[in-house]
């Protein structure tokens, strides 16, 4: 009675659509776009040709770089927040969250304004004498990675903060009581036990980065292509839906593999933590 409408709705407007579009992966594209229902595996052979394989690999690389940088920034920040006195803590958390609730396109756009050859960052670099003439910051792979880190950083900080904050309250004092140094406490106790938060944060950053097509388009100047751009183009420009669906499926399979890895990791560490 309670479940009926919701399950029916989810089945019709989530499960059926996703299955429908996944079924397209084994069909041909029609002469005028659309789908011709002749079974074929050509889409998969095509997706693994060097052209598209290269895009998959470079997308994974860009998403991984963004995730790694977000982690390098996010972990110390989350740790620092957990160490703040209570009343400062919520203020800083609000400050971290505000940009995240600002429209994603606006946040990306801010980087166009910032990185432009005629923009403020170049003004500053030239003004401070750090560079002789204006340099290309925008429309580079670095700009794409920076943009992804920027838009998803809060998604890294919050889960790590959640796990570190809990540990900070409970465990290290016990460890310190037993004579461990701060550093040893961190390395042997806090860090391993915060790993589930780290993994969650990494997934929260990696997943949307991999499928993103707006950041590469706006900050990459069309010179950096990610798998999300290919899927978008196949659906909305080239109208080769079967091939677009195939690329999307490959992306999702990669992500599912990551989820599986995550659940293994978190299970292992929660077992070690004796729970």
């Amino acid at each position: 009675m309670f479940l009926g409408p919701g399950l029916a709705f989810t089945a019709v407007f989530v499960a059926v659509p996703v299955l429908l579009v996944l079924s397209y992966t084994v069909f041909d594209r029609g002469r005028f776009g659309g789908v011709e229902y002749d079974f074929t595996l050509d889409n998969f052979t095509r997706a693994f040709e060097p052209t598209f394989r290269k895009v998959l690999v470079s997308s994974l690389g860009i998403a991984a770089a963004a995730t790694a940088i977000a982690l390098a920034i996010g972990y110390p920040v989350a740790y620092a927040i957990a160490k703040l006195p209570e009343r400062w803590r919520s203020l800083v958390l609000v400050l971290i969250v505000i940009p995240f609730w600002t429209n994603f396109l606006i946040r990306t756009y801010a980087w166009i304004v910032l990185l432009n050859t005629q923009g403020v960052l170049n003004d500053a670099l030239v003004g401070l004498g750090l560079v002789d003439e204006r340099i290309d910051l925008l429309y580079t792979r670095g700009a794409v990675v920076a943009g992804l880190v920027y838009v998803y950083l809060p998604l890294m900080i919050l889960p790590i903060y959640a796990s570190v904050a809990r540990l900070e309250r409970e465990l290290p004092e016990a460890s310190a009581d037993l004579g461990g140094s701060r550093f040893a406490t961190f390395v042997r106790v806090t860090f391993p036990l915060s790993l589930p938060g780290v993994v969650t944060g990494c997934i929260f950053v990696f997943v949307p980065s991999l499928g993103n097509f707006v950041v590469p388009e706006l900050l990459g100047g069309g010179k950096t292509v990610m798998v999300g751009n290919l899927v978008r183009d196949q659906f909305l420009k080239a109208r080769d839906w079967p091939f677009g669906a195939t690329l999307a499926l490959i992306m999702v399979v990669l992500l599912v593999a990551l989820f599986a890895l995550q659940s293994v990791v978190s299970r292992r560490f929660s077992v070690e933590a004796g729970r």
């Binding site: 002469r31 005028f32 776009g33 659309g34 789908v35 011709e36 109208r239």
Partner: peptide, 9 residues
């Protein structure tokens, strides 16, 4: 090119 529907064909 183009287009959504198989009907076109």
């Amino acid at each position: 090119l183009v287009v959504v529907a198989a009907l076109a064909a």
